[in-house]
């Protein structure tokens, strides 16, 4: 944790340049350019809406604008989670030439990976904010929970990014495991549905540390209520554990990186 602060203080220029590199490279030579940052979440949201409509048809409930926004509010952070984890897991091995040649804290790679995804997410988030501003869905006090939940989410992702990137450096299997996991995670994470739909099985779904955050985001925006206190605390606990443990373990392994990559 303290090492994390030191990196942020001493190497913020490097972190900035690496983040900028990741963003620039992603949108160089693509016709759509930065518009992709909006289009991708739009596609995910559309998929979510289709699922929603399907569910509504089965249960005979009408679909309203709130439901659509509810999907978007959860799908966007979910896209951020998936792309951050995917990108961060491979980031040390993808930069192997730097890892073996130049000395600087390697934690900047996974952090820059998360940061560049976070910027994509912010672009998409602006769109959502605009939609909320012009939609009849009222904006209430419970919206103040959004930054809190986002901090929990970002802390979780940063910790996981550090751990997974280091693990993948030693064992390339990690990348494949993560890939398979992320592909199917959409089914057991309450993105397109609510955990409450599963009744007594809901806690099983919410045990996934990301799930309570997504549920919470849905609750505080379209649900106009505070997030579930127990599960939010549970997610915050994970966030603290990951943001403390991730950098500590990463730092322990760091001296072995150059000879193991």
């Amino acid at each position: 944790m303290f090492s994390l602060f030191r990196i942020l203080r001493r190497h913020h220029d490097l972190l900035y340049m690496l983040t900028l590199r990741d963003i620039r490279v992603k949108y160089k030579q693509s016709v759509m350019g930065f518009f992709w940052a909006i289009l991708m979440p739009l596609i995910i949201t559309s998929a979510g809406v289709i699922v929603k409509v399907g569910l509504a048809k089965v249960s005979g409930r009408p679909v309203n604008l709130g439901d659509v926004l509810g999907v978007a509010v959860k799908a966007l952070p979910w896209a951020f989670v998936v792309s951050s984890i995917r990108f961060a897991t491979a980031c040390l091995t993808a930069n192997a030439n730097l890892v073996t040649k130049i000395a600087f804290p390697r934690a900047v790679f996974p952090l820059a990976a998360v940061l560049s995804q976070l910027i994509d997410f912010s672009v998409a988030a602006i769109v959502i904010v605009l939609v909320f501003a012009f939609s009849p869905v009222p904006v209430t006090v419970s919206f103040l929970w959004v930054p809190v939940l986002m901090v929990i989410l970002i802390a979780q992702i940063c910790g996981m990014a550090l751990l997974l990137s280091a693990a993948n450096l030693f064992f390339r299997d990690v990348k494949y495991i993560v890939e398979v996991f992320l592909t199917f995670a959409i089914f057991f994470t309450p993105v397109f549905y609510e955990a409450s739909m599963f009744g007594k099985w809901a806690p099983l779904l919410l045990a996934n540390p990301v799930a309570p955050v997504l549920e919470g985001l849905g609750a505080v925006t379209v649900g106009h209520r505070a997030p579930d206190p127990f599960w939010t605390l549970y997610a915050a606990g994970w966030a603290v554990a990951l943001i403390l443990g991730g950098p500590a373990i990463f730092q322990r392994l760091e001296p072995k990186f150059a000879e193991s990559v």
Partner: peptide
């Protein structure tokens, strides 16, 4: 260290962008 010059250059970035990227890496 001048060990492998240009390590850290990204082929898709311009000369100017790479000067900044590589400079901060060093």
């Amino acid at each position: 260290a001048l060990i492998e010059v240009g390590a850290g250059f990204h082929p898709d970035l311009t000369g100017r962008e790479n000067i900044y990227l590589n400079g901060t890496i060093l």
